[in-house]
């Protein structure tokens, strides 16, 4: 009896919750979304205008090698080649952000299409698509990204391609799960009976339902992609030096780590911080878009 009774209230939330949800017309934007959304926007702005602000970051002066932060107006000091670290970080924002945002965007579009297609298809097509995706799951994502990037060769374009491929399966999986959740709802039945085509049903009926979950997930993926892109560049598979890119800067300055840790730590911290911005923003969006409420 204890089981029975303890389980009951959980099964039946107070009706007040429903009434209040119904009475609610607008949603309050959580403070995390304001702050971290602002920070994310700042990062995007940096990616756009960074190189212009930073000026020449390729040539350094050997007399100014490895200056301590603050010295001679170099806020974060200079690196092993005598280049201003802060300016290189600002200039590096563009390739770093491109190789994180673009793959998520590409994989988001392709993954959503695959996931919705699988979720709305018949049983056989569905399982063919999902088992194919499982093959990609068999490899750790990082290894797969490295393998693809190594096969394609270095450069930003190839980083974007390899990361896009790696990110498609998880996004498709989320899109598929969400599509399966809504596909047996009554409104889908009436949509099918309306005579609308499959594409129209997918875009106008399914997408509005799975969109919020995808946006939340993709936002957090940007954080992951930043780390992955940094990793690829660190391995020399990204932007070719001397052009700055955060991951490549770590690799570049590795040799000075012991005596002047700031030269390699600075880009590492920037990658970590930027990645956190998108992670927390994703969490905030989850609350804002009320993804969980829809899943009841």
């Amino acid at each position: 009896m204890t089981d029975l009774l303890v389980a009951s209230p959980a099964a039946a939330p107070p009706p007040a919750a429903d009434a209040m949800a119904t009475a609610r017309t607008g949603r309050r934007v959580p403070w995390t979304v304001w702050i971290f959304g602002g920070l994310a926007a700042l990062l995007v702005l940096l990616a756009i205008f960074g190189p212009a602000i930073a000026g020449n970051v390729v040539d350094g002066s050997l007399r100014q090698r490895l200056l301590a932060p603050g010295a001679h107006g170099h806020l974060l000091g200079t690196d092993g080649q005598g280049r201003d670290v802060l300016r290189r970080l600002i200039a590096g924002a563009r390739p770093s952000m491109i190789s994180a945002l673009l793959p998520v965007l590409v994989a988001g579009l392709i993954g959503a299409a695959i996931g919705m297609g699988a979720g709305l298809a018949g049983r056989r097509v569905h399982s063919t698509i999902m088992r194919t995706l499982d093959v990609f799951y068999a490899f750790p994502a990082v290894l797969l990204a490295i393998a693809i990037a190594a096969a394609l060769g270095s450069g930003t374009t190839n980083t974007v391609i390899s990361l896009s491929i790696v990110l498609i399966p998880p996004i498709a999986r989320i899109a598929e799960t969400e599509t399966m959740r809504v596909r047996d709802y009554d409104f889908m039945e009436s949509a099918r009976a309306s005579g609308a085509g499959r594409g129209s049903i997918a875009i106008r009926q399914v997408l509005p339902n799975i969109g919020p979950a995808l946006i939340v997930y993709c936002t957090t993926l940007v954080g992951l992609a930043l780390v992955f892109a940094g990793g690829l560049s660190f391995l020399g598979l990204g932007v070719a030096p001397p052009k700055p890119e955060w991951g490549q800067m770590i690799n570049d300055q590795r040799q000075y780590m012991l005596n002047d840790p700031q030269v390699a730590l600075a880009p590492a911290i920037v990658i970590f911080a930027a990645s956190m911005v998108f992670n927390v923003l994703g969490d905030g969006l989850r609350d804002l878009l009320d993804v969980r409420r829809e899943s009841r």
């Binding site: 009554d186 409104f187 039945e189 009436s190 309306s194 509005p208 339902n209 829809e294």
Partner: peptide, 13 residues
């Protein structure tokens, strides 16, 4: 045309 059963899910939320 069809009018489905469950008011809560018969329209796209």
């Amino acid at each position: 045309q069809i009018v489905p059963q469950n008011p809560q899910t018969s329209l796209n939320p």
